[in-house]
């Protein structure tokens, strides 16, 4: 690193110094030399420029511009409205039943998906964290749901959870739950539709999170386990008293990831609905999430200004919840020790 670090300095200050020293050096500052200086000084910026340009244009700018749109009357079907709406789009949120309903649904599905997801991932990871035959293939297999398009798996699960002839009802029937005469209608109420959608989310992400946990588990120093054995801790206690506190940073990371992802849930609830195009999340919004409501308000009701305000509300909610969850997880997984 020393040369590369020193290089810009020498091409700047060092070269200047040499120039002041003698006239011969100055003449030797040939065009090749100038090229070299350009390369040293400006090339780094050229290398990062494409990233920053594209990122600012299509990532950052929309995010900020979203805030401007939220303050405007931006209706695709009615351009005659006054340009600025002030905070009207935001105040309207507070009285919007659809918004609160969607918020409620989003949190319900989020709880039903993230908690079992991370707990099961932890267990799967501790299963994988053994000397295994065909080790790689077990790990690759866990990623099958991860690479499967959510659109594809959501279609499969939609059929699983159909009222008549659905695999879920049939399987539950085997355990004496429900009956063919009065099958569970998974799309009739909040609880059942939430469970169905949470199942899709859990299926997709358990294996992925398990690999994240596995990676962290394998970097725990071995002597920690040696020390723990003296207290006579069994595998289960070992998992909760040693492994979990030791991999706490990655647990916090997955909690934040699943909060960000879970609160923006879109594809699963969309395709769970036989009338997906309406984006209502069931006949009475039983499982309509905020991301879905944003889509509906923006592109079905054509009110982009209001949809933008909702996006900002969702952004704030995600920030707050991610913060709370981080604190909670820190307490729960670290406090056990």
């Amino acid at each position: 690193m020393s040369t590369t670090r020193a290089a810009p300095a020498s091409s700047g200050r060092g070269a200047a110094h040499g120039r002041g020293g003698s006239g011969a050096d100055e003449r030797r500052l040939s065009w090749r030399n100038r090229l070299y200086r350009f390369d040293m000084r400006y090339m780094p910026y050229l290398l990062i420029a494409p990233f920053f340009l594209l990122f600012v244009l299509f990532g950052l700018f929309p995010l900020i511009f979203n805030g401007v749109v939220a303050l405007r009357n931006y209706r695709l079907d009615d351009p005659t409205l006054p340009y600025w709406a002030g905070v009207e789009n935001f105040t309207r949120l507070f009285g919007d039943e659809d918004f609160w309903n969607a918020l409620y649904n989003t949190f319900g599905i989020f709880l039903l998906s993230s908690v079992p997801q991370l707990l099961l991932a932890l267990i799967v990871a501790s299963l994988l964290n053994r000397k295994l035959r065909l080790q790689t293939w077990w790990r690759v297999g866990m990623l099958l749901p991860y690479v499967t398009p959510i659109v594809a798996s959501s279609m499969v699960f939609s059929v699983f959870f159909s009222r008549d002839f659905g695999m879920a009802n049939w399987a539950l029937g085997l355990f004496g739950y429900g009956s063919p005469e009065a099958p569970i209608d998974w799309r009739a109420d909040k609880t059942h539709s939430w469970i169905a959608i949470a199942t899709m989310v859990n299926w997709k992400w358990i294996g992925y999170n398990a690999l994240l946990y596995l990676a962290a588990m394998q970097s725990i120093p071995r002597d920690v386990y040696e020390a723990s054995a003296i207290d006579g801790a069994g595998p289960w206690r070992q998992l909760w008293r040693i492994t979990v506190p030791m991999i706490q940073p990655i647990i916090v990371f997955t909690v934040v990831l699943s909060t960000i992802g879970g609160l923006q849930l879109f594809t699963e609830p969309m395709l769970f609905d036989p009338n997906a195009q309406t984006a209502t999340g069931g006949p009475n919004g039983e499982w309509q999430t905020i991301a879905q409501l944003i889509y509906k308000v923006g592109w079905k009701d054509l009110n982009l200004g209001y949809a933008a305000a909702m996006s900002w509300a969702l952004f704030l909610i995600i920030l707050v919840v991610a913060g709370i969850n981080t604190l909670l997880t820190n307490r729960l997984s670290g406090g056990r020790r």
Partner: peptide, 23 residues
């Protein structure tokens, strides 16, 4: 015996039938 068995890190412990079954 226990420390000798338990002192091993999980990733050095060969998986048992139960582990394979659950996997």
């Amino acid at each position: 015996n226990r420390p000798a068995l338990m002192g091993r890190a999980p990733q050095d412990t060969p998986a048992g039938v139960g582990t394979y079954l659950l996997l």
